[in-house]
Nucleic acid binder design. Sequence first.
DNA 1: TTGGCATATCGGGAAAAGTCGATATACCTT
DNA 2: AAGGTATATCGACTTTTCCCGATATGCCAA
Lengths: 100, 100
Amino acid sequence: MDHVEIFKALSNKTRLQILGWLKEPDLNFPEQPNADFDTVGVCVGQIQIKSGLSQSTISEYLSILQRADLISSTRVGQWTYYKRNKEGLEKLSEIINTAL
Amino acid sequence: MDHVEIFKALSNKTRLQILGWLKEPDLNFPEQPNADFDTVGVCVGQIQIKSGLSQSTISEYLSILQRADLISSTRVGQWTYYKRNKEGLEKLSEIINTAL
DNA sequence: TTGGCATATCGGGAAAAGTCGATATACCTT
DNA sequence: AAGGTATATCGACTTTTCCCGATATGCCAA
């Protein structure tokens, strides 16, 4: 993954907020029946509502964050759940400490 | 400084390279008479030559990086020297560890 | 004070990103 | 099979970024 793409993914207020929300899902989203935040994450619809942007925009933003390895997804039935990707964020710290 | 602006500053290959070069000036730039790398940094002209982009582009890129607190500048006579800003980069690490 | 460098700023054209509504796809229920 | 719901993709339009050449500014030397 190109470093530039990671930083581009972070160059947007909403996408940064999404990462912040996903850091503490229980504080930022209503309870989900049959879907543990830590195991699968938060479903697209909830993130969309919270953001106030359109469904299509949020779907795209989530895929940008995923391409940058900052989040990961799990499909369960008709829902897609996204959660923070700890490894990707650690790699980002490393990039900053070694390349910049 | 807005977090988004910091990441935008980093969302460009050339600007990332500049930060990398400034991390080890002695490995990346020819010796400068009367200007210690650690004290003042590297002058715009050298960075421009190394980048291969136009003078105006590099001047703007440097000011974008400076606005994001990632580098700092010192004017000496007709030269402006830029160097890495350790504090800004540390703050960036902190942002990643606390906000994302 | 005139000319010559080094850097900054300005104006612009091309490419990319932001964002939407409409539509497609996938899955679930009945 | 049909309809409903969740998400993804497409096409379009607007705004921002990339990068340039031209010009302005600031400083130095003759």
